[in-house]
Design a protein around this nucleic acid. Structure first.
Lengths: 345, 345
DNA sequence: CTGAAAGCGCTTACAG
DNA sequence: CTGAAAGCGCTTACAG
């Protein structure tokens, strides 16, 4: 509640010295600096946000546009939102949450009113309606995700394509000749959500390169449909001996349950990899090998780039974060013996 | 990007007239008003946010403090966050998202820097650490949730106690004499999350008033534990013929699955009510009678009250939203016949 | 190393 | 019904 004038009086200096002492934008004598710091601390001084925005060139506010679609996994989405806010705080930035029903309008509004210094775009679709606006707004912006047309944009994301190849190779190197991918529900691909498509496409390309038999099925929020999908996987001949799950946590849990119910042991009968998962796969039964998708990492890097963009124009770029592979012993060689393992029905 | 001066020049009036014409805070001649509006529209005028904050007494920004605990249902949480942001927009307010690791510090910061006009508190614990700070901050604040000590606070929430009684009565009135409650996981009660406790306590009180046999079990994110809980419910003598589920969507889905697996038909063998659910229970199989918890309703009302508090101090209050009961035919009378229904094992 | 002062772009009494 | 002007509380050239 104290103003800069009160701090200046208490420290026996001018308000400009207070400002410089606190911001460090100009060298200030050490004893002066200490007196100012002490006065500010004692009075609980916090610069008035509005005055700062008006006088300075920074608002210390970022806009976060993160539409939540019906098909989006809410826990993952939430994790990204929180990770963005947390990362922003490290640079003394706060985050203004834009609502979905105002996606483009909100961006225009907070930009032209100069409420925010930059924009973070989450949940990017392959052909995202917000992108043309982002391009013409000319305000520092970073996307977490890679759209079809990245021209003029700064994008960060996990390297889903390498992740897909990594998953395929992990199984192929263990000797699996027939593998399957349990993807996300149909709606996600249909909507053009970007990384699931990239993962799936890179996966099938790699499978072909490795000359493997390959089955793809979509998951479902409906457990009956999910089980039907898994059953159809298991009835493929030759039966897949390696499974990669790239879908939401409940689907992965339900799939594991159903596999157990069908009498399949992991990894003895079936090797399983959890891919691009934001949750802790060590809590699954059994724990799964995982190529994690870490919201803090993607969001943190996005904020770093955005902060750099605030200092001066950044060249458009697509920065892909290399995937990691975490072993939890859910992958082994394919079952031995000429006869396929018996599967309960 | 246009300033008020440009609009004034274009409309041939002073900047004060522009301000008044746009805000409506002073009567302005109709033709003048129209000219100003047209000029503003044509120039794409948006008042500078910082200048507005500094000159006016409003920042048009609200702080939202919404810690996400491990046990919190992310989808429900997300729905409340979005509902707050959406409701705020109806009053031309934007929302600044505070992070959990800065819960109290963030509140102090945005308050003393005068960044926000008010605070919305989500996910209120029975004994919430943030509340003392809220009380002494003296900034308009509204909680969605009811803590143990509501002194000096404005709280809004669904009337969970009436909801609990409603659920009990609905079953009791149908003739059920033994009923069960499947609550949230243990951690939620332990942490002191408020509404689950209120619901459970009111439920058991009502059950006693209606002289019913009553069993309470906690759910679990772990499906095995969940099934064990349900099995223990079903082995109670006399077997409960009515079940109320007050837990997250995955648990409710898993419970229904397990009940079906055990051969129990709904409502022939077991009547089931979904309580305080934020998701669409018509999508469950079978669809369930529900006492919904509607994020838009609670959050909307919270914002209404907060807007009122901005106009002038509000008396502390606890406003409870009356619950509704939606029939989807998952409740009937108890099974007839003297013998209990056979339950598969 | 420090200070006096302009100016950021609005809102709102104060005048007429 | 409308305008001229003070002032919100900072930041940052401009001076010394």
């Amino acid at each position: 509640m104290a103003s800069i004038h009160e701090v200046a009086k208490a420290a026996g200096v001018s308000i400009s010295t207070v400002s410089y002492a606190l911001s460090g934008k100009r060298p200030v004598g050490e004893s002066t600096r200490a007196r100012v710091a002490e006065a500010a601390r004692r009075l609980g001084y916090q610069p008035n946000a509005g005055a700062r925005m008006l006088a300075g060139r920074r608002t210390q506010l970022l806009a976060l546009t993160a539409p939540l679609h019906a098909e989006t996994s809410a826990p993952a989405h939430m994790a990204f939102v929180l990770a963005v806010a947390t990362a922003a705080r490290r640079y003394d930035y706060d985050v203004v949450l834009l609502t979905e029903d105002e996606a483009s309008g909100g961006l225009s509004r907070v930009t032209s009113s100069k409420l925010v210094d930059g924009i973070v775009v989450l949940d990017v679709a392959v052909n995202d309606q917000r992108l043309d606006l982002i391009r013409e707004l000319g305000i520092p912006s970073v996307l977490v995700g890679v759209p079809a047309d990245t021209a003029g944009l700064v994008c960060v994301d996990l390297d889903f394509e390498t992740a897909a190849r990594l998953a395929v190779d992990q199984l192929a190197n263990q000797g699996h000749r027939s593998i399957a991918l349990l993807g996300d529900p149909h709606g996600i691909y249909q909507r053009g959500s970007n990384f699931q498509q990239r993962f799936r496409d890179a996966f099938s390309t790699r499978v072909a390169e490795r000359h493997l038999d390959y089955t793809f099925v979509e998951s479902s929020q409906n457990p009956v449909e999910l089980r039907t999908s898994i059953d159809s996987l298991l009835s493929v001949v030759p039966r897949p001996t390696g499974l990669v799950m790239q879908c939401a946590e409940p689907s992965q849990r339900a799939a594991l349950e159903h596999l157990a119910g069908r009498g399949l042991r992991i990894p003895a009968d079936l090797s399983v990899i959890s891919a691009t998962s934001t949750f802790d796969t060590s809590q699954l039964s059994p724990p799964l090998d995982v190529i994690p998708l870490i919201p803090e990492e993607s969001s943190g890097r996005a904020i770093e780039l955005l902060m750099a963009a605030l200092e001066g124009p950044l060249d458009p770029m697509v920065e892909l974060i290399p995937p990691r592979y975490v072993v939890r012993d859910s992958v082994a060689g394919p079952p031995t013996g000429t006869d396929p393992v018996t599967v309960n029905h």
